[in-house]
């Protein structure tokens, strides 16, 4: 899993790194710059928990005190702007609402770069639907099968399950503005989206809905993405959601090294997805899972620490 050569070079790299070789080793001379706890927002989904606990545990091993604060979406935005939260990691621009972009634009919260996830968004259907609609995932075949997805309320149109109303209505606009034979129904919450997916699969019923990857539920089901034509994808910005890290603007002055570390932090699908599986499908504790990951992947995170200490 790790690159030995890189690991060796890292070991030799700096005195800082050596000092850090022992987990929870003595704090570095300049770190922490302040003994106040760095507060990281714990939002509502597992991927974000993994990203946050990895970041937090690296910070702890650098000698910082870290506090994990559970927060909803709006409270986290407000908290990050006020400094009640030092950083909120892994925000998805596809379900951000209006407030976060506004704060970032006004400079009340700072965008400190991409998380590193290779995210995807689009319309998914359970794999077995291909049996009753053979042309899938081709767009024309999908449009031809509209009636297959119909329910009593939407007849003769197909039923399309849309994101909750407060996440935006891009799919609905695509459907309405292009007069597709579908009627979009907003889900109301992420739980509702997943409950519908689980239920449809149990009953082997047709379902098409707006969704995104990586998501833990996708490792438990067989599914396909509808091939939406490139011009529509472009027009309704339905290609790649990106995931960003945000920080309280005061972070870089109060804890410069921690700020640089969070900037350097990169969590890829390869890191996140197996851990998500351990937590969501095997019921392990997220803190234990990330601590174990840190023990086994020192090379990866020590590279971030190096960047932070430069």
């Amino acid at each position: 899993m790790f690159d030995l050569a890189r690991r060796a070079s890292l070991f030799a790299a700096t005195a800082f790194a050596l000092a850090l070789a022992a987990p929870q080793g003595p704090a570095l001379a300049d770190v922490p710059e302040s003994s106040d706890p760095i507060k990281l927002a714990v939002l509502e989904w597992t991927g974000q928990h993994i990203t946050t606990y990895i970041a937090g545990q690296v910070l702890e091993r650098m000698g910082y005190t870290v506090e994990y604060v559970t927060a909803g979406s709006f409270p986290s935005a407000n908290g990050t702007a006020d400094g009640d939260l030092s950083a909120t990691l892994e925000l998805w621009n596809n379900n951000l609402g209006d407030y976060w972009p506004q704060l970032l634009a006004e400079g009340k919260a700072e965008d400190i770069g991409d998380v590193g996830l290779d995210a995807r968004e689009g319309w998914i259907y359970p794999k077995y639907v291909e049996a009753s609609c053979p042309g899938l995932p081709a767009w024309d075949a999908f449009l031809g099968c509209a009636e297959l997805f119909a329910t009593p309320e939407t007849l003769p149109n197909g039923r399309f399950l849309e994101y909750p109303a407060d996440w935006g209505d891009r799919a609905t606009r695509l459907i309405v503005e292009n007069s597709l034979a579908f009627e979009s129904v907003p889900a109301g919450s992420e739980g509702a989206l997943i409950a519908e997916l689980k239920s449809a699969i149990e009953k082997q019923q047709p379902l098409v809905m707006m969704f995104w990857a990586p998501h833990w539920v996708l490792s438990t089901v067989e599914y396909g993405w509808v091939d939406i034509p490139a011009d529509l994808v472009e027009k309704y910005s339905m290609n790649k959601p990106h995931t960003i890290k945000t920080a309280w603007p005061g972070l870089k002055d109060k804890w410069p090294a921690a700020y640089k570390l969070l900037k350097a932090l990169k969590i890829t699908n390869e890191i996140q997805q197996p851990l998500m599986d351990l937590v969501d499908n095997q019921g392990q504790d997220v803190r234990e899972v990330t601590a174990k990951w840190l023990d086994e992947n020192e090379a990866v995170w020590r590279a971030w620490v190096d960047q932070a200490m430069m």
């Binding site: 209006d98 506004q102 909750p164 407060d166």
Partner: peptide, 21 residues
């Protein structure tokens, strides 16, 4: 009930919450 996608006052309250309005 707004969590199951109804379009009533409860949903308004939710949307206000996420758009900080």
């Amino acid at each position: 009930s707004a969590l199951v996608g109804t379009k009533e006052l409860g949903q308004e309250v939710y949307r206000a919450l996420t758009s900080a309005d």
